[in-house]
Structures are given as C-alpha cells and as structure tokens.
Design a protein around this nucleic acid. Sequence first.
DNA 1: CTTAGCTATTGGATCGTTCCAATTCTAGTC
DNA 2: GACTAGAATTGGAACGATCCAATAGCTAAG
Lengths: 337, 337
Amino acid sequence: MKRRPTIMDVAARAGVSKSTVSLVLQGSPQVKPATRSAVQDAMAEIGYVYNRAAANLRSASVGLVGLVINDLRNPFFTEFATTLQMTLAAQGYATVIANSDEDPTLQAKLVASMIEHGVTALVISPAYGEASDTFDALARRAIPVLQVLRKGDERTGIFPFASFDYAGGSAAATRHLVDQGARNIAFVGGLPGRAITRERKSGWREVLKEQGIAEIALHGKSSRAFGMQAAETLLADHPKVDAAVCFNDLVALGLMTGFARAGRPIGQGFPIVGFDDIEEAAQSWPPLSSVACDIAGFARETADRLLAWMVEGQRPEPEIRSPVRLVARASSLGVGP
Amino acid sequence: MKRRPTIMDVAARAGVSKSTVSLVLQGSPQVKPATRSAVQDAMAEIGYVYNRAAANLRSASVGLVGLVINDLRNPFFTEFATTLQMTLAAQGYATVIANSDEDPTLQAKLVASMIEHGVTALVISPAYGEASDTFDALARRAIPVLQVLRKGDERTGIFPFASFDYAGGSAAATRHLVDQGARNIAFVGGLPGRAITRERKSGWREVLKEQGIAEIALHGKSSRAFGMQAAETLLADHPKVDAAVCFNDLVALGLMTGFARAGRPIGQGFPIVGFDDIEEAAQSWPPLSSVACDIAGFARETADRLLAWMVEGQRPEPEIRSPVRLVARASSLGVGP
DNA sequence: CTTAGCTATTGGATCGTTCCAATTCTAGTC
DNA sequence: GACTAGAATTGGAACGATCCAATAGCTAAG
C-alpha cells in the first residue's frame, strides 16, 4: 500500500511492458510518441519516482560527485563548493558536499561513505594530516579524484591538483606595496610548514630578495583573531614595519581592526594587501586591497575538468595553476578614511 | 579485472558463502569469531567496499539525510549545515548538503534528485517562492521532512517547523536600546512581506507600542551593502533616529561601516543591535551587540528530532521555537572606540 | 498474398546485496 | 554410537532498475 511504485506498476497502468517504461525513462527515441505520453501520464497518476539506486546497480555510472572540503565555514570554500555544485547541477550531476572540518579521521569516514554511496568522481580539498589510506582506497577503485586549492601530504601526488598561482599573486602584492613606497613589508598569517603558506610566502620573499629587504613574518591561524593579535605584535615589537602582505583577507581584516583599535587606521602610511578577495574585502573600511582569486570561475573550470575526465576519460594535467589578479583598494593606496 | 569486488568475491576468498559475508557486514553475533576474522581479512585483501545502493535496494532505509539550504553562502546557514552534518555523521548517517540559492526551481530539482537517491529524511530551509509541487512530492512518499529556520509558503504547513524565537529576541534587543536611553529606534533590513521579517519586526514593534514610540523601518536585502546604504538614508532623511535594531548582523555591520565612513562611528550615542551573533560580530570594531542564536545547539537539537522521527517514528510538534539570548557589546553600550 | 526491412515492443537475465527457510555442524546427553 | 538442541552456515528468492536478443507490428515492394 505505502510501497513506493516501481516501473512495473507504471507499466501495468499504462498497459505496456516494464522495458518500454525503462526506455521512456531513458528518453529513447525508439518509443512511439503516443506510447511515451501514455507512460508519462501513468507515472504522474501513480506518483512514480525513479529509483536511482536500483538503476545504478545494473548500469554503473551514477552522476554523483563527491565534494569534501576541509573547512566549509570559510567563505572562500563555501563559495567554491556552492558554485561547483550549481555548475554540476546544471549538467545533471548531483553533488554531495561534506565538511571534514580539518579532521583527517572524519575525512576518511566521509570519503568511505561517499565511495559506498557510489560517487563517480571526487573533488577534495584535503584536511592536513595523514590520509594515505583514504587516498589509497580511492586510487584502488579507479575513481577520478581532483585535488583542489590545497595539496594533501606528499603521497597524494598521485592525483591531479588544481589551484591558484599563489606565488605569483603574493609577488604582485609585494611589488605593489614597494611601489607605494613601503620598505619593511611583513608577511602576516599562515601556519608554518604548510604548502599553501610556503607558496603564498614565496612570492613575497622573492620580491624582498630582489629589493634587498629583510624578512619579517608572523605566522599563526588564518583567522581574524590572529590578525588582531598580529597588529598588537607588530605595533609593539616591530615599529619599523610599514606595510604587510597578509596570508588571507580574514587576517588582513583582523589586522585592520587591530590597527583601528590602536588608533592607527590602516591606509595612512601603512598599506596592507590581503588574499582571496572575499566579498567583505570591498565592503570593509577602508576597502581592503586583495589578491583576487576568481573562485566562481575556478569552480566552473573544475567542473569542466571533472566532466572531461568522467565523460571522455581525459585526465587533467598533474598540476594546474589558475591566474590571480591584484585588486588595489584604499587599504594600500594611502587614501585615508 | 577492474570490476569492483562483491561479497561473492570475498566469500570465495574466505571460503564461506555470500550469506555469511553478509552477516559479517551487518555485525551479526551469529557468526563464529574465527569465521568473522577470516572474512574481514579477505575483505581487506581484495579491497572490498560495501555497495550501499545494492543493499538499500533490498532493505529499505538508507541512513542518508538530505539538507537543502536556501543560501549556503550565508555564514549563519553554513554553520547550521556543517554542524548538522557532523552531528549526523557521528550517528552513522550521511548527509547530502545542497544549496538552492533562493531559487525555487533549482530547489525542486535538488529535492527531486535527493528523493531519487533515496534520502530517508529531509531537512529544508526553503527558498521563497512557489514550491507546492516540491512539497507534495515529499508528502506523497512518507518521508520525514523538517522545515528549519524559515517557513516556506503557507502550504508547507504540513511539515513541522523549528526555528528561533525571533520575536522575543528583537523585543529584548529593543528593550535594551530603550534602557540605553534611545528614543527613536529604527528597524533596518529584512525584505518586506516575508515571515522572518515579520517575526523579527514584531518584537521591536511591540516594545515601541509599549513605549509609545513611532515606527521607522528601512527594508531591503539582508546584506552588508544594504546596511551601508541604509546608513546614508538614516543620516540624510531621519536625523532624529538615535538607535537601530538590525534584521541581521550583516546589515548591522554594513550600517556600522556606513556610519564610520560618514565620520559618525557607531556606539557613541547611536547604539545598534544585530541579529544572529555571527562570529564576526564579536570581532568587529566596536564589537557588535547581537541577538545570539545558538546555531550549533539548534543544529544538534535538529539532528536529535530528526533521529527521533526517523528511528522511533516520533513526529515533532508542528512548531518549535528555540530561545535566543541578547549579547550586549560595545556597539550598544555607549563605549566608544 | 508473401516477404523483406523497418520500427516498436517485450521477456528474461543481470547487477550486489539482504532476507528467509533450510541445512549442516558441534557438543552434550543418554 | 545414536540422538538432540542449539549454533553456525548456506542456497535461493527478492529488491527495482537496465540491457540484450528476440519478437510483434507495420508498410511497401514483389
């Protein structure tokens, strides 16, 4: 009675065989238009819904993409995840989004659960930490896996990796600050020892070397709170520092708040540049200069690459870097509030 | 060769029957420990993964929960979604998160896709707009559906609804501003005609009536940008207004930025209170007073309610309101920066 | 009227698991 | 050594779709 209707029920109602119903479901041009609409009416009448699980059992590919993100609360990743999901949805693929919350154990569970549910492909921005088992399991099934935005530990090199040209971005930012007359440019934020910190620092370091400037770097969690704390540290311990490249916008905004609190608003003689160009950057006061990563564009490219891999079996290059763009705003242009 | 191994392969390897393997998978106490470990070894050796789709085909319930959110980019919803997912994950349930992006059409597609994938239950914060078809389909299958945070159109009353006591919260906020000596308290933000705007306004209105204060409300998109715009409007057209209750923190932060830009920092003679108490509220300058909704707690309660419904068939009450808490910070306490 | 050559439809096998009833094993008792 | 109760294991049917080879229906040509 409460049983959910099957194609057999539809077939009985429409007076055809289950095979015909199946053909209609797959949009086969084989079926006569009259038959097709009879079947469709029958489906509507008895409230039939497709049972994808049953279908996949017989016919492999599912059209289900898994997306595992290390920190979904971070707006940067949220934007990426939602855009990717919507792009894939437009192509008829369903996406399962999951947040590993930087926990490799949870991440392993999530990935396992996704494999069990039969994802056809996986996009992952890995949590830091030991995860070789997780990746081994993925490699063993021949599931297309795309690492994005972040590289896991060394062993994950088996899977293609796509991200932004962070080094180029921070170099551009640093050069911009030099152009503004800054001489002692600190690097603020980023946990030490991580690939992304290394990348974002390397561009800054390169320019400093070029200019013969000494390095001052403050590392820590990439949060607003750390930025505020860093402001105090800079003001107290590094009075000569006259500009900063920040690991990301959150740190930069925190830094801005910290300076404002100390009565030394950013932008007047102390230019800073953030990274990521999150929505808030343009809306802070003063507006925050930032290295813009076109996340939405990147998400769309990711979707394209994934589809090319899934559908045409065309594996992407092992490492892809999307260009970034420096957006100069008041926070680095000496235009005070 | 590349075929993914099945329980038959495991059975062959372990020298038992497929039924025994199945029992091991289900953790049945029936199997002899020796047999159990033999089977488990075999699974490890050939890299077996459970095929949930096949299992569900035979035995109904899946342990898959759908979560459809109207705007996943909004940190408020992000926090809810991630906490809910992690809580359910701890209970062994997988969660599919999807973002409808306020688009009823996309929402319908997402819900349909989830039903096809066989979700056992659905949590939805509906997009505004016509969605009766979507909900009819859900009602027809007897899938537990919990509406959260937002009520859809009137027709969705069929499903239980859980949210916060918004009216109580805005009443508390308004009373607090009155206590600070404010007399002309504006309400800023919220799109007109929506249930949530009505609720958040009603508490404010109630207190104004009590105090015999005239109403001034500025409605608009609940964004930082609108808050900035509202600041200009208030300063230009409503010079008498001396405090504001904001629809949410984003608007409040925008308002703060707008006032700062105009050289009239918030907190000095112009107290404001936001709503939601997002992480940023405590970190802005001045720190923003806000009506705190314990989203993480709410998400955990939601998970509990859902589990009670799914597992014990215990349908929640038609309308549940979780209490909120006013967090007074500098933005409403007259403590200037 | 038969038949070839289409197009449209169909029955049966199949996917990987669970469920059930039936069978085999084990050990204890007489 | 036969018997039995319980524990452990097993083979086959079932879930709801797809796929394939086979069949039915139709038209036009011979």
